[in-house]
Every structure is written in structure tokens, then in C-alpha cells.
Write a protein that binds this DNA or RNA. Structure first.
Lengths: 347, 347
DNA sequence: CTGAAAGCGCTTACAG
DNA sequence: CTGAAAGCGCTTACAG
């Protein structure tokens, strides 16, 4: 029943040429073949329904046309989860990477990793041509990963000392600055920040920095601007909501460093009978697709997440294929999109 | 700079044994080696930091330890999106598949596919050991895909005539039946269904069937129970909301076949000043992680999506490795989780 | 322009 | 128990 695999040998035999010639035709080394030969080969390919075995090709060429997408393995109550499941941000990026890579002739291997070693292991054993790394990691993670000799694109990383590591990101500080400016422009002065992982997430450090710089620029005393730190998840946002209500009654506006957290804040405030934006204004960061549909609709800092993914593939593959003119980093634009969760401060 | 690749040859030489022996040690064919030999090999492996090249192994064994996850490529306003981006349901499943596969020694290749041919192409060219197929497809898609000679696990499919295709799913009809029963138990009689793709999605046909059967069992006239069909997305839900308000003023409760759509319905009703659940009760289906956090929190039919993914890997890999006792399908439980969007009908 | 041959890094009978 | 050799399906100098 199981049909024997059709190989280049079969095609060669059928077309009456050598295996080398079939290879040359299929790899479009057109200067090495005549059109007549090509036609014979192509029709044999069609006739026999031949499909190139990438495994053999990879072994032989040392190039797999496979790209790895790595993201952190997270645990939630000891249950293995993935960033993928927790935060739609990653799904959107992966969508972009996958689509763009496919268009450029590359396939995608995804893996959640718990250590740099796992990333290294995988890229060696699958002979990955390049890797995209999502998410935040400890510092020595990067040191180790950067020993890899394939092109790497990081996303939202601020740890790229190595010259040939490309980063795709946004100006996080500026985005946070804009968000805070927006709240200030509405007359708020007691502004909190809902932050996360300030100890070791450079992205969030940047966002915090932008928050502070907008505040100080306006002469606001930081003392009145509490930092409420929780994890990046809806649950983290829920907790921020509690703490806001319990400990920071004078706060009238809050900037949250991630939309996914803002969802939780809105939920908690609603549960406690607080009106958003009448009692408290909220501005998020990311503009996830759902943010337009929360109740009330979330005012936030927009970044084009899908495009981030698309550009990641383009840069990574450009680098793999040795294109020149590959920049060391790409910074995509941010902007404030005003919806319903922010409002002029009550007198 | 670039260090030469460490191969089995190097390990063999260093350990003073043959390549075949190294292979035997590494593949745990312990009955073919002595412990002394094994120790020599292992320490050489460690010393040289050897990593097995899966590409070579795949070519040689005809087995890749790679699993493909395929899902439909969708377009939204002509922009390529993916199911991944549109519906968190898929992210959750993929999380489960990836985690479980990794634990079992398999890596994951993901691809959005536009046709059966693409799926076939990919599984051949990457020598995938098995594939998991998510999402709905036209009928001839399945006919073609089933010509593949690798194990296949479908998720939520009702098109598995082939004996060796395993399906992981739930009792969609029963879930919908329970949902509708819940609405009926609250005194509602004018109940609508927010449906999708009833023409060609068996899952949704099943859910529709459960809806109808609960209704007729209770002696309700289907005439009063409109079917409002839109696409599976928040936007689809938004449209259902509009149509509900415009065309179905007497409806007091609605069962929506997907949480993601329910989010849109809640949003629209809210925008038009309708109170959920006072004016209209809503029950969804899926219990996405976010459903606990909508305002109001969504009453829905729960299924364990992550577990679906985990089981998918277990079955697929079990099948790949020739375990016996692999069932032809796995049906996971559903249950109604009552939150805030459903309420006793007003007199 | 075309083909024979070596090689990519493994595994697997087969002999010893 | 161990090793030499052939083979997996390609690519790539090299000769012709």
C-alpha cells in the first residue's frame, strides 16, 4: 500500500538525465542546464509527483530553511503554560513571523524554552538557519544564546551588545511618555503606574522611565505617583486594581504597562463600583486586538504587533541570506489611541 | 572562529570506539554495549559538547521526531491573518500540544495552510512523523489530507471516516444542549442562537443541533428562536449584537457558539444601553481564559482547551510510536459555568 | 551542458 | 560486545 518514496533518482531515471542535473534544474541553476533538459525534468517531477526531501537537502547543504521561534516557558500554579496562552501579544507576533517567513520560503519551528541551553540545543540539532527570540530573560541567558553562530532577531530586547544580533522593537520610553502626557493633559496629577518586572525587564524599565520623565517634565512630584508592580497577566491587573482601591485612594489616573493587565484593572474597579473613566482614568500599552472591545474601550499606546512579526522574519531571513543593508535594529512607531477609559479629571 | 561541528566521528575517535558504537550508546541500545564503553562515550560526549544532528538522524532513520500543527490561513480585509491571531482558542490548544510534545521528545513545526496540498507538501518535505490539524475545512480537504500515510490527529473534526485518524473533541451537541437548558431553566422562551458557518462547520452544526433539541424537548416553538449567523470573531459578535437589537426585540436570551463572538455581543448590547443580563441573557461556548474577566463575567460552556492540546500530543505520539490501545477518538467533558451574563427572565 | 563520485552525519544489518 | 560498510536523499566541486 505504502508507496515507495519518489526520489531524485526516480525523477532522473524517468527524465533520462542524471541526479545532478535534476538537482541543478530544481535549484534553478539555469545557467547549467538547457531549457529542453529543464522541461524534461519538470514534467518528470509532475508526472511522478516528486517532492524534495528537505531533510536530505539540509544535511547536504548545511541549511535547513527552518527558523526557530523561542519564547519563555512559564508556569502558573505549577501548571506549565506558555506565554502563548497567557498573552495574545505573542500570538499576534507569531502570526506575523509565520506568515512572512512562509512567503520567503522558510518554515517555522516553535518552542517554549526554560533555559538558554535548550535554545542552543534546538538550533543545533535542527540545524536552524536563524532564530527569533520573544520575551524577557535573565542576563546570562543572552550571554549564552549569543554564542550561537546563526542570525538572531530579538524582539523588544535591550540586551543586544552583539553586533550581529538584530532587534525589532519600539521606543518603549517614548510610548510611556506619550501615555503619561495624555493623562497629564487631562488634568491628572495623582497618576499611578501599573508596572511589572521592574527589576529585570528592560522594556518595563524603559516604560517606567518614560512615565517618570513626563511627570517630572510637568513638575509633578513623583511622591504622589505610586508604582504598583504585579505580573504581566490579567491576574496581575486584578491585583493592581485591588491595591489601587485599598492603598491609593487619591490616584485619579493610572498608566498600565500592558493591555492585558489593564483588562484586569478595569475588571476589579468595576467590581468595586468604581467608574472608569469617571473615577479613574486608565491608559494601557500594546493595543491588543481586544482592547477596542473592552467595556469601556481601552485607551492605550498602540504598536503594530503583527508588523513586528512580519519585520522580524524579513530581517532574520535577510540576514540568513546575507543581504547587505540589514540594520542592527528596527524601531517601529507608537502612538496614543484615545478611546473610552481616559477622561478629564474631575474638579 | 566558527568551530567545526562536532560529529559522532569525533566522539568515536575521542572515546576510542567506532561510530556505530557511539550510535548504539546514544540510542540506548544498552544490550549492545558494556557499561565501560558507555561511560567512555558519555564522557567524550560531555567533553566535546557533542549534540546529535537530528537532520542526519532523520534522513537515516526515516523518522524526524517532528510534529506539524496545521491551521487555516485566514484573511481579514485582504490582510493575511491567522487563526492564531484571531482566536485565543487556538493559542491555548497549541500551548498544550507544544508542551506535551516536548515532554515526549518531539519538536513542533507550525504552519498556516491554504490548501490540503500545502499540508501534504510540508509533511513530506520535512518528513513529519505526524500532524495535528486544527480548524474547519471544506470536505475535499479531508479527502486529500487523508491520503497522507502518517498518523493524524484532528481536533473538533467530525469528518474522520478513516480508521487511523484520531479525533480529539468534545460533545458539541451536548454542550449546546446544556447551554440552552440553562437558559430555559431561567424561564426564557424567546431564545436566539448566535451561530457561525452552519453550512460547512460540523462543530457548529452540532451545537445548533443541541440548541434545537433542548428547545423542542421543552416544547418551545423554534419559530421564536432566531438563528443569527456571523463569522467566528469579535466582529462577528458585534454584528450579532446589532441584529439582535434591530430585528429581534422579543428575544430575551441568546446562546452564542463561541466565547470570542460573545465578547462582541456584550460590547454591542452595552453600547446600545441594553443591560446584560437584565435585558438579555448571554451564554457562550469555550470558556476562554478571558471569559472570567469580561464585564459582566461570561456564563459559558466550559471545555478544557489546554488539555485538548495535551491529549492531542499524547495520542499522536502514541500512534507514531505504535502503541496499541490508542482510541479512535477522545471526547473530553463539557460543563456549564454560570457567571454573570445569565439571569432569570423578567416577568 | 551533463554526469560520476564524494560527502553531509547519522543508523543498521552483518561479520567477526 | 564491537566495527566496517552500505545507505538515507540530497548538493557540489570536478572532469569531460
Amino acid at each position: 500500500m505504502a508507496m515507495a518514496k519518489v526520489t531524485m533518482r526516480d525523477v532522473a531515471k524517468y527524465a533520462g538525465v542524471s541526479v545532478a542535473t535534476v538537482s541543478n534544474v530544481l535549484n534553478h541553476n539555469d545557467h547549467k542546464t538547457t531549457e529542453a533538459t529543464r522541461n524534461k525534468v519538470f514534467s518528470a517531477v509532475k508526472k511522478l509527483n516528486y517532492r524534495m526531501d528537505m531533510t536530505a537537502r539540509t544535511l547536504s547543504k548545511g541549511k535547513s530553511n527552518l527558523i526557530g521561534i523561542f519564547m519563555p516557558q512559564v508556569y502558573e500554579n505549577n501548571i506549565p503554560g506558555t506565554i502563548l496562552k497567557e498573552n495574545p501579544y505573542y500570538s499576534e507576533i507569531i502570526s506575523g513571523i509565520e506568515y512572512s517567513a512562509r512567503m520567503l520560503g522558510y518554515d517555522i519551528l516553535i518552542a517554549c524554552i526554560g533555559s538558554a541551553e535548550q535554545a542552543i540545543e534546538l538550533t543545533h540539532k535542527r540545524m536552524l538557519d536563524g532564530i527569533a527570540i520573544l520575551g524577557g530573560y535573565e542576563e546570562d541567558f543572552w550571554d549564552k544564546v549569543y554564542t550561537l553562530e546563526v542570525p538572531i532577531v530579538t524582539i523588544d530586547s535591550y540586551d543586544h551588545e552583539r553586533k550581529d544580533v538584530i532587534n525589532v522593537g519600539i521606543d518603549d520610553e517614548f510610548g510611556a511618555y506619550l501615555a503619561t502626557k495624555h493623562l497629564l493633559s487631562l488634568g491628572h496629577t495623582n497618576i499611578a503606574i501599573g508596572a511589572a518586572m521592574l527589576d529585570y525587564s528592560p522594556v518595563n524599565q524603559q516604560r517606567y522611565k518614560g512615565f517618570v520623565s513626563a511627570l517630572t517634565q510637568e513638575g509633578i512630584d513623583i511622591k504622589n505617583c505610586p508604582v504598583i508592580e504585579e505580573e504581566v497577566s490579567i491576574k496581575g491587573g486584578i491585583n493592581i486594581g485591588y491595591r489601587l482601591i485599598k492603598d491609593h485612594k487619591d490616584v485619579t489616573a493610572i498608566f498600565i504597562v500592558a493591555d492585558i493587565m489593564a483588562y484586569g484593572v478595569i475588571k476589579t474597579l468595576h467590581q468595586f463600583g468604581k467608574n472608569v473613566p469617571d473615577d479613574i482614568s486608565i491608559i494601557g500599552f500594546d493595543d491588543l486586538s481586544f482592547s477596542n472591545y473592552t467595556i469601556p474601550a481601552l485607551t492605550t499606546v498602540r504598536q503594530d504587533i503583527y508588523t513586528k512579526g512580519v519585520e522580524t522574519s524579513k530581517l532574520l531571513i535577510g540576514c540568513i541570506e546575507g543581504n547587505v543593508e540589514i540594520p542592527n535594529s528596527l524601531v517601529l512607531p507608537v502612538s496614543v489611541v484615545i478611546r473610552e477609559t481616559t477622561k478629564q479629571r474631575k474638579k
